[in-house]
């Protein structure tokens, strides 16, 4: 597995992943998706205890809790862009079954796998450990896709968000080096 050992704190990293992937799957299920994509990985990462991902958003004046709403709104915006009335999300929400127990958290959508691979590469290169800010950084560095569209929809400058995420990571990496 690509995440058998990531950074310099394998036990911590494994604990984080054991929390992250089921949470991403739960977020995907709650939204009616069959697999967790990068956007749900970010939603889950923003709830991680280290708080660096949330603080990265706050550094650029954005509320991380708005990301979920931005996701839905950018989908509606995309549909409207081709002249479709957006699907009534709230009506569908009422008819979706509640999220089931995690079925297969390791099985994710290609976008999530791509995001996670890039994070693992960075964490290893920087001899760091897995922080939620790495997920924000990976999301902000993407050029295309649902996640970056939602970030832009929030009115956030991706380059500024990436810088904010790097700052959060450096603060923790620097502190643990001392």
């Amino acid at each position: 597995m690509i995440w058998s050992r990531i950074g310099r704190s394998p036990v911590t990293d494994m604990r984080i992943m054991n929390e992250l992937f089921p949470a991403a799957e739960a977020a995907a299920q709650a939204d009616g998706a069959s697999l967790a994509g990068a956007e749900y990985l970010l939603v889950a990462a923003l709830e991680l205890e280290d708080g660096t991902g949330r603080r990265a958003f706050e550094r650029v004046g954005a509320n991380p809790d708005d990301f979920g709403t931005a996701l839905r709104e950018q989908h509606a915006e995309a549909l409207e862009g081709i002249g479709l009335q957006s699907i009534d999300d709230e009506l569908l929400d009422r008819h979706l079954p509640p999220a089931a127990a995690p079925i297969d958290p390791v099985k994710t959508a290609p976008s999530a796998r791509k995001m996670f691979r890039s994070i693992v590469k960075k964490v290893r290169k920087e001899r760091s450990q897995l922080y939620s800010a790495y997920f924000v950084l990976a999301a902000a560095e993407a050029e295309h896709g649902t996640t970056i569209r939602a970030i832009r929809h929030m009115g956030v400058d991706p380059a500024a968000l990436a810088d904010a995420a790097r700052t959060e990571i450096q603060l923790l990496v620097g502190a643990s080096d001392q």
Partner: peptide, 25 residues
């Protein structure tokens, strides 16, 4: 306007997945 077209495809697929799940339930 490729970006818009592709994003719309993703949104339609998401909508179809959600509708299918609700309909199966």
């Amino acid at each position: 306007d490729t970006e818009t077209a592709l994003a719309a495809v993703v949104a339609m697929r998401r909508g179809a997945d959600r509708l299918e799940l609700a309909a199966v339930q």
